[in-house]
Simulated scan of single mutants.
Amino acid sequence: MPTARSDQYAAFDDAIAARGVTLRTSGDDYRRPHELPGWYHQLAPVTPTSAWTTSTERAAFAQARIRLGTGAAVLRNYTKSMKYHRHDATFIPDLTDPTTACLV
């Protein structure tokens, strides 16, 4: 899911383009390195295994959880770690336990 900041930048890019001005960095060029799905494939060998959804549906979360396999995980958005909530809101102790994982 795109972050508001990327969406805002893309809207700014569109608005300024409508006035005949071209930004040095387009909305797409801003989003690509700023959000995980845009750069993960290039840095996967040196980045923790990751899975993401483009939906807020529980089924999409379950599919991402299954793709990750077993063990613990930390739930993040594309650009922030939510590190201040790690122990209660974003830490998944066991990916194979759908009940515990869905409490997140």
Rank of each mutant, 00 (worst) to 15 (best):
M1F: 15
T3M: 09
R5M: 05
Q8F: 13
Y9E: 01
A10T: 15
A10M: 05
F12Q: 12
A15M: 12
I16Q: 09
A18N: 09
R19H: 12
R19Y: 06
T22V: 10
L23M: 14
L23T: 14
D28A: 15
D29L: 11
D29S: 14
D29M: 11
D29T: 09
Y30L: 08
Y30H: 13
Y30C: 09
R32N: 09
R32K: 15
P33R: 14
P33Y: 15
E35D: 11
E35F: 10
P37Q: 10
P37A: 14
G38N: 07
G38L: 09
G38I: 10
Q42R: 15
A44K: 15
A51F: 09
T53S: 13
T54V: 11
T54W: 14
E57Q: 15
R58H: 07
R58L: 12
A59V: 12
A64W: 04
R65C: 02
R65V: 03
T70V: 09
G71R: 02
A73W: 02
V74E: 00
V74T: 02
R76A: 00
N77W: 02
S81N: 06
M82F: 13
K83H: 12
K83N: 08
Y84I: 04
Y84P: 00
H85W: 13
H87L: 08
H87Y: 08
A89D: 01
A89K: 03
A89R: 05
F91E: 01
F91D: 01
I92E: 00
P93K: 08
P93Q: 07
D97E: 03
P98F: 00
P98I: 00
P98N: 05
T100K: 07
A101K: 10
L103K: 10
L103Q: 08
V104W: 04
